[in-house]
Write a protein that binds this DNA or RNA. Structure first.
Lengths: 212, 212
DNA sequence: TGTTTTACATACCGATTCGCTTGTAAACAA
DNA sequence: TTGTTTACAAGCGAATCGGTATGTAAAACA
């Protein structure tokens, strides 16, 4: 009872979705491909047919939502863009909002940050992750460089960029570990504006804050 | 050839130190007690004699450096303490400095943040960790509450506390993933002061910053 | 001095683990 | 209609896992 091409694609996507749930619940290392197969209603044969091994499976899961490198740069340097710093701020809020509104993104980031051991076995995923982070920091640094005049004295663009990234990661990390901790969507703007107020001498808080 | 009590204690500590290295290098789940035993020059018998299982082994590793709950509170509310906010700021810098100067603390935090899947198996460690985080946030919130008048309008003590914690975790996370990313010890004060400048209306930067 | 306890090593257990090979029925191409 | 390929299922094998049970020599104690 061999499946048609379309059926095979469904099988593949089903395996991905199932693995996502299992990885999220039990951790990557603690999930065997046998478990993935069973939960997907297939055997390991199917899993190994579609994916080389667990590492590649995870990698393709992440590829589903991983923003392409250029995407961030395009977004920041678009011709329609306003001030670089305002741009950077908006991107930050967008990233948080995108996460709040997309369960899959939330799941995958949770897996990356909390349910996954960055060991040699997963070196591919690990490298790409670090790479993306450094790219993000470099891009942010560029933006701060352009708005250098507005930086408080003693704060270099690089330091600003790293502080921005640390805050981003920290907020994500906290929020993913304890989803009830705060309302990301509502509070993210206040947090980023607060940070920018510290980084810049003349930051105007554009958005209305929830004052509680 | 049974060992003396002192020898046994050495064995135990040796196992702990060896496991720390293996966990750090290969991740907790990817390290078997067999590997720990071999690398320690003993057999699994010894490991199981000293520790119930891997989870308890990890737990006792963390207990070596885990600050006690009261410790933070005492530190913040000491009679000799100055202004609550200055206190909080100094604590932050101290925590970062303690990490920069203590390899074991760095290792264990790296294991916790990057080499460990928070799954049911390790629920003990996980709970204690979350507990500690919430405690830290609550304490920070208290301090901000005391200095509430100095908070920028629209920023609640709770939001300030969470932003502070996010920044702390983010800085640690970044630094542990990529040790060359920045010089924690040197830049931590600048980062925290920047954040405080954003949180407070009148924050005076006390320390000299490395301006580069 | 004799007995008990300690600090392990050794051995065994059933349960998984991954990776590979082989089987197979049906889809698809010629 | 007849190969050929596809999309898996099923089975194999060696390794390894954690947990436990048992053996043992020497330390600790009475």
């Amino acid at each position: 009872m061999r499946r048609t091409k379309a059926d095979a694609e469904k099988t593949r996507e089903n395996i991905l979705a199932t693995a996502e749930q299992l990885f999220l619940r039990n951790g990557v290392a603690h999930t065997s491909l046998e478990q993935v197969a069973r939960a997907s209603g297939v055997t390991r044969g199917a899993v190994y047919w579609h994916f080389q091994n667990k590492s590649h499976l995870l990698d393709e899961m992440l590829n589903q939502v991983r923003p392409r490198r250029e995407q961030l740069a395009e977004r920041l340097n678009a011709p329609t863009a306003g001030h670089p710093l305002q741009n950077l701020r908006d991107l930050f809020v967008e990233l948080m909002a995108g996460l709040a509104g997309n369960e899959q993104k939330r799941n995958l980031l949770t897996i990356l940050l909390l349910r996954c051991e960055f060991t040699d076995e997963l070196s591919d995923a690990r490298e790409r992750h670090t790479d993306f982070i450094n790219h993000f920091i470099a891009l942010s640094e560029e933006q701060f460089e352009r708005g250098r005049a507005r930086l408080r004295p003693g704060i270099s663009p690089r330091l600003a960029a790293r502080l921005l990234h640390a805050t981003l990661i920290g907020m994500l990390s906290d929020r993913l570990r304890d989803p009830g901790l705060f309302d990301t969507l509502a509070e993210a703007p206040a947090m980023i504006d607060t940070l920018f107020s510290g980084l810049l001498v003349d930051w105007q808080i554009a958005e209305q804050r929830a004052s509680a």
